[in-house]
Write a protein that binds this DNA or RNA. Structure first.
Lengths: 204, 204
DNA sequence: ATCTAATCTTGACATTTATCAAGACTACAA
DNA sequence: TTGTAGTCTTGATAAATGTCAAGATTAGAT
């Protein structure tokens, strides 16, 4: 199934490194093998969808390369970006993945993207069998909880301009990698308002 | 130290029930004893602070009885409610608790409140020794991640009126237990705007 | 029961942000 | 290189929400 074993190996190396870093533990060769057997490589071309609203999100994807946005579409047809994804991040609708409910969100990749996919059951097995994976998931959950609390705080407490400055400080790479209309949606403002905020900031 | 053993026992019963429900596991008598030795009962009177900005949040508190709000104060002196707490919820600044950094938030109880306190280290030990506690924490983390994603979505995607209706559906008890100015702050709007939204909704 | 402080409502007005429309700029495919 | 679609900027205007101030209502304390 894997067309290019050499390249695929590089993809897994990125995942091993990630697990070892997040867990502060080493993976044995056997454990690496287990991981490799559980994750499925997947490529998506620019503009393709990783997930469509209404489908069940069967997989979480570990991003080897590429960028993506998770968004909802409201009644008026406006899109709202909930999350952005880059290399070494996970993408997926967590609620749908965990509960196997229809996803509320769409996930579209914005550049050609390489992923490693894993189901919830596979992940549970890996956590049971590999301490480093269990530790990684725990560390991720903690970081995730902290990050969302911070973002919640920003969303409620800050003005649009402050939210932009906050983003520029916290995730400067976002401004490099994502077009402005996507950033605007992530901040919960219109593209025009962001354009004006940037103009103001520049003049200061 | 405990002034009223009989009453204190009732407090722990609430916690045991909570752990058993969340984990879908039973606690043995020995395990209950371990839990009881780790948690410290605490009472706060209306308006007292559980945590003040700048202090380290040494404890997470499991709420037996009472209500609380976690909020930040911005440069202009405006308060922003990040989280609300009721019976059978946990309160605390998770970031400060985990990383032992100064808290960004204040937590004030709005009614006379009874809590059970636990430090991060104690919690880690309990998780290591009691499978039900480990399972409870995992279940809580998952629920928490899902709930925050939903709230994030609401904050970014919905209008003020839609956010209020969403809250009324999701947490109707909030509207019973918290004054409107607190609810308004939780929704990220002014008390006046919430008052007008309610007037509108009533007229429909 | 009365007083006081807190909460809630309402109106007038200010500010922020969205919306719509047009044109400028950019990137990429043919 | 040119054309085309996507992106970004700018202006005019509309809509949503905030701010301030005053009065009404409610809850608690004495």
């Amino acid at each position: 199934m894997v067309k290019n074993p050499a390249k695929s190996q590089l993809m897994f190396d990125a995942l091993y490194t990630y697990i070892e870093n997040k867990s502060s533990m080493k993976l044995s060769d056997d454990e690496r093998k287990l991981v490799e057997e559980s994750f499925k490589p997947k490529k998506l071309r620019k503009r393709q969808y990783f997930l469509q609203e209404g489908d069940v999100c069967k997989y979480m994807g570990f991003v080897i390369k590429g960028s993506s946005r998770m968004f909802s579409v409201d009644q008026r047809g406006n899109e709202h970006v909930i999350r952005l994804g880059l290399e070494n991040w996970w993408i997926g609708d967590y609620e749908s993945y965990k509960l196997l409910t229809p996803a509320r969100f769409n996930i579209e990749v914005l550049e050609d993207t390489e992923l490693l996919l894993v189901t919830n059951e596979q992940m549970q097995q890996l956590m049971d069998r590999i301490p480093a994976v269990a530790a990684m998931v725990k560390a991720m959950d903690e970081r995730g909880a902290i990050a969302t609390q911070q973002r919640m705080h920003a969303a409620i407490s800050l003005t649009a301009e402050e939210r932009y400055e906050n983003l520029a400080k916290t995730y400067p790479m976002f401004l490099q990698r994502f077009p402005q209309n996507v950033i605007a949606s992530y901040l919960g403002i219109s593209a025009e308002t962001l354009s004006r905020i940037r103009k103001n900031a520049y003049q200061k």
